[in-house]
């Protein structure tokens, strides 16, 4: 039962990350996902310090707020300070993450909220923390319930907001030209990324969540001609990562999260190889004609 719970929780998180990660990649924001996953740390710690408990809800809120702040700081550095995007990201998340580390080490010393756990996560403990009814009946791991709710939220958001999300991803200027608020979509989307990231903390940790956000969708991207297929493939690769990673860890007797991220990398390599093989046969090479008409002046 424990194995099933672990795989199920990991799969749910991997699907959430894969769906959002697909849009992150297409928005050329894969590294922003990376940044958020680290920068939510002070949010979690602050939420813990304020609420005084390790309850998930305050932490989720704290993390989501910090995630949104991260994107805003990155945007501000780019627009107001004239920094390049990669430099803005680098400054923002390392600074916020460091702030979180200081907060943990100096204020929460005696509580079970250490950087090891935040960095690497421990999915093996997921089945131990169950969600119980008042009569003591166990309904399964708390992490599964929470990540499941987040996944449902993400699916609802993508189904309902598909057009807006795609339009603002593909062509922001055009979306703005027909009066659609690109800032709203950006904010809504980034809030979901923050939420997903913090939910993943308990299982895969801050560093390895990036693997789930980027590797399965990147593999799917290589094999897809349309977005719907890419989302389905991301889902499939997410599940494969969870299952494959778990058994890899079992075989190697190592960290489950590490094995999952490793497996995600292997999956990506496989997808890459496959895309190279198939593109040779189909022979549909994009044609570009950059002929410059006006060489006159």
């Amino acid at each position: 039962m424990a194995a099933l719970y672990i795989i199920l929780t990991a799969s749910v998180i991997a699907i959430s990350c894969g769906l959002l990660g697909s849009f992150l990649i297409l928005r050329k924001m894969a590294l922003v996902g990376d940044a958020i996953s680290h920068a939510v740390l002070p949010g979690i710690v602050l939420a813990f310090l304020i609420s005084g408990s390790r309850d998930n809800i305050p932490m989720l809120i704290g993390a989501a707020v910090l995630g949104v702040i991260t994107t805003l700081i990155i945007e501000m550095l780019q627009k107001k300070a004239g920094m390049q995007e990669d430099a803005s990201i680098g400054i923002t998340f390392t600074w916020l993450f460091a702030l979180g580390v200081i907060l943990i080490t100096s204020y929460t010393g005696q509580v079970d909220l250490d950087q090891e756990c935040v960095l690497y996560g421990e999915i093996a403990y997921v089945p131990l923390d169950t969600f119980n009814l008042s009569n003591g009946l166990s309904l399964g791991p708390r992490a599964l319930w929470i990540s499941g709710s987040v996944l449902l939220l993400i699916i609802a958001f993508i189904l309902k907001g598909y057009k807006g999300l795609v339009l603002t991803t593909f062509n922001k200027d055009y979306a703005a030209s027909i009066g659609i608020s690109t800032a709203f979509w950006q904010l809504a989307f980034m809030s979901l990324v923050s939420l997903t990231t913090v939910v993943s903390f308990e299982s895969v940790g801050a560093i390895l969540v990036v693997a789930l956000l980027v590797a399965p969708p990147a593999a799917a991207y290589l094999l897809s001609q349309n977005l719907k297929k890419m989302l389905w493939l991301s889902t499939l690769f997410g599940i494969l990562t969870a299952v494959g990673g778990y058994y890899l860890a079992l075989v190697l007797d190592g960290s489950i999260a590490g094995a999952m991220a490793t497996f995600a990398g292997v999956l990506f390599a496989g997808a890459w190889g496959w895309s190279k093989l198939t593109s040779k046969h189909s022979g549909t090479i994009p044609v570009t004609d950059k002929k410059n008409i006006s060489t006159f002046f």
Partner: peptide
């Protein structure tokens, strides 16, 4: 971007009012 020609042209019919 993983989209077809028709996908892009259909964006021409997107409006604030029919986005959902």
């Amino acid at each position: 971007f993983p989209a077809s020609v028709m996908d892009v042209v259909e964006m021409g019919r997107y409006r604030k009012g029919n986005l959902f």
